[in-house]
Amino acid sequence: MDLALLRTFVTVHRAGSFTRAAALLGLSQPAVTSQIRTLERQLGRPLFLRQARGVTPTTIGDELAHKAAPHLDALVEITESGLDEDSSLRTLHLAGPPEFTAERALPALTKLADDAGQGFALRASFGTAEEVLEGLSAGHHDLAITTARPRGALLTATALCDEEHILVAAPRWAQKIGAAPLHREDLAALDGIPVVEVHESLPFVARYWASVFDRRPTAPGTVVVPDLRAVLACTAAGAGLAVLPRYLCAVALERGDVVALHDPAVPPLRTYVLVVRTGTLAMPHIARAHEWLLRSAADWC
């Protein structure tokens, strides 16, 4: 069987589209379609179901991808690293949310690069859960950190750590509503406080309100910035209340730049997972980084 056909097939399977696969492979869309049809004729079975938007693998297609993808990835690793046994340089491509990746994962992996002494190189990119999983599936990344568990057998996820969320505001807002702990019946005290968030849909505040207060927030976002570090800075400056991960605002809490407005018995949690393409942990540099992040995460909870 032609390895080029298998490579095209795996790329289509990961991309979910002939068009996206063509862009990743540097081929025309008709060329990709032709290669998939050739492979289907050789196997005597359909590998994809064509739909209006992209393609869906058949059962045979999923089985073939699951068997072929790890071996193709290993071949790519060999060609990229070269055959020189004296060369130990490896590049790890990591993707994840900007704040968690910058504050947690990158410092840990930088320490690994220093300790390993094997020319460990690191490249990182940021994105949403959907973006990093799509990039991982397409082969752009080696590891992905996300709060969304992937579906299917081509990606393997391992729980990394839980992230505790805290309702915080600048001290002047805390003084305004009083020092007593908030209860569900006291929520009116929060109605006059502006909200600082990462998106107009108020994902962090809405999740906190639903989990702790069993209701939806009523105040709109007054300041919306797409980075939790900016949310913290605006909150400390007095822009309003926010829901933030404890790891991100722990120092600000210790300094008194922000204060916790609520101390629920069971704080809301969000779980991060570490995701790889199935089979790629056979590659030493990916396996080493994967294990190191899991070990480091024991100190993050």
Rank of each mutant, 00 (worst) to 15 (best):
D115W: 12
H262C: 10
A148N: 13
A68K: 03
G192W: 11
S137L: 13
R104M: 08
D263A: 11
E103S: 03
A68M: 05
L49F: 09
L154F: 12
F9I: 04
L106Y: 08
V231P: 11
F48Y: 00
A108Q: 07
I36T: 05
V243R: 03
P30L: 04
Q51A: 10
D142A: 05
A219H: 11
L112T: 11
Q175W: 13
A144S: 12
D299A: 15
L187K: 06
L261W: 05
D73S: 07
E40M: 02
S17C: 02
R45Y: 03
R45G: 00
H141I: 04
R270Y: 01
P267Q: 11
L106W: 04
Q42Y: 03
T33C: 01
F204P: 02
E63G: 02
A169D: 01
R7N: 09
A265M: 10
L43V: 03
L244K: 02
L47C: 00
R20Q: 07
G119E: 11
A157H: 13
L281K: 15
T110H: 10
G117S: 11
L64E: 08
D86H: 11
L106H: 09
L244C: 06
A144Q: 12
R288H: 13
T128I: 05
T278E: 14
A105L: 10
A282N: 15
L182W: 01
I36F: 04
L122V: 11
D86W: 00
V266P: 01
A74T: 10
L155A: 13
R45K: 07
H93P: 01
L75C: 04
E163K: 10
H199I: 03
G26L: 07
H66F: 00
V168K: 08
I60Q: 05
L187G: 00
L3P: 03
A144M: 09
V55W: 04
L269Q: 14
T110I: 09
A121I: 00
V205Q: 05
A74F: 12
T110D: 07
W209H: 05
L106E: 00
A148S: 15
A144F: 11
D142I: 05
S88E: 02
D142N: 08
V223H: 08
T56E: 00
G82M: 08
G26C: 03
G26E: 02
A148I: 12
Q118A: 15
R255I: 01
H13T: 00
E77L: 07
T110F: 06
G44I: 05
A174P: 14
L75D: 06
A289P: 14
V251S: 15
E63P: 09
V212F: 08
L202A: 08
H290L: 04
H262K: 07
I166Q: 14
P268W: 00
H13I: 00
A116E: 15
A219W: 04
A65E: 01
E185L: 10
G135Q: 15
L241K: 00
V212H: 11
